[in-house]
Design a protein around this nucleic acid. Structure first.
Lengths: 205, 205
DNA sequence: AACGAAAGTCAACATGCGTTGGCAAACGGG
DNA sequence: CCCGTTTGCCAACGCATGTTGACTTTCGTT
């Protein structure tokens, strides 16, 4: 990706704090570069200079826009992500729908997905782990409780551990043969297990 | 843990390379400290000085013993770990036996387990990921192929992703409610899924 | 055309890191 | 008792990093 100079067009005088409204164009450019690098290398390995380099600007610009490396990460880590719509799926197909939802998103570009992005950094940073918990609650636990599944939290936890394990092994660690299977093969292999987590009776408490 | 000065006892003139036989006592002390810190913070966040500090010695000592930070990690990352004995278990109970094997080990002290140790560092270091692959092949894929399971590699991959996900969510990220469940509850929840991965028919290839 | 603020660059600082070499104490055989 | 090896500590180097401040360039407004 060549260094897109891009004329930032001075931006519109939108609703932004008086603290310092900057060019919205380069702001997004920086955030995209930051997300890509944070997701690819993790927090420590990602340097401000590298982010600035990929964004085609100077490192001090990143500081002016986001204050600090932590501020940059915080800004990069807040993004909308849509929970899967499993309510519109018959109960027997919800396991597969759940797996397919995430696999489809991850197949496009794992680095672009918030869950993979957070996962990578959460491993080395405890505060990010809390954020991952929140995100996960909203995106997996939420839909399950909305459908009145009993023990929704525990079922979501089991399902989550499997989905996280998949994301970890396939997209981050790239372990074989998991990394070279097709998306459909992954879905076919995982869906029955997820379905089972949804429906199997719970023992103990 | 107070700084154990400990007289290294000059050690026995054991079989050690001519390059530099050092005190075996402090060598192990350093390795223990290194393993604990690597497992707790990951590779980047662990500093030579911190390892030396926890071992109660100087940082340069670590260098003399292990040459470099990478050498220290390599030394810390080589340790025996026993594959689970599922051959002596009836086929119907192998899923549970597999889960229980790892959960039992992790309940004692996750930081002491090689798999958790490697997992944490593999996320930020690609070369460690390869080592994790090797370890995993030996400890999970091996026992399965030895029992002539069809599609042993793929089944092991699915099982592995679930076990890795558990280790990640419960012991590293400490996500709720997974982190606060009892070991038995974990085993009860996961065992049927693992058993299913062992026995369910494989679709596609 | 001139002004001034915004946008961006450049050089430098302070810090913490891995790493190195030199120097002091402990130990053991002659 | 002395001396060489081993074991350890101290101070420092070189480097990359996050961060800062002064300087230049762009560009809309008057």
């Amino acid at each position: 990706m060549p260094s897109r100079a891009s004329r930032p067009t001075a931006a519109s005088p939108d609703a932004l704090g008086v603290g310092g409204p900057r060019s919205e164009g380069t702001r997004r450019t920086i955030l995209d570069a930051a997300r890509a690098l944070f997701a690819a290398r993790g927090y420590e390995q990602t340097t401000i200079r590298a982010v600035a380099g990929q964004a085609g600007i100077d490192a001090s610009m990143v500081m002016r826009y986001f204050g600090s490396k932590a501020g940059l990460f915080a800004a990069a880590a807040t993004r909308d992500l849509d929970p899967p719509d499993i309510a519109g799926v018959p109960a027997r197909g919800r396991g597969e729908a759940l797996v397919r939802h995430f696999v489809n998103r991850w197949e496009v570009d794992p680095s672009e997905d918030m869950l993979v992005f957070l996962l990578r950094t959460a491993v080395t940073d405890g505060s990010v782990a809390e954020q991952l918990q929140t995100t996960f609650d909203r995106i997996v636990v939420g839909p399950l409780t909305a459908l009145d599944y009993p023990d929704a939290e525990r079922r979501a936890a089991l399902i989550g551990s499997q989905l996280m394990g998949l994301a970890l092994c396939r997209y981050i660690l790239q372990l074989q043969p998991l990394a070279s299977l097709s998306g459909d093969e992954i879905v076919a292999g995982l869906a029955p297990a997820i379905q089972r987590y949804l429906t199997q009776p719970m023992t103990g408490a």
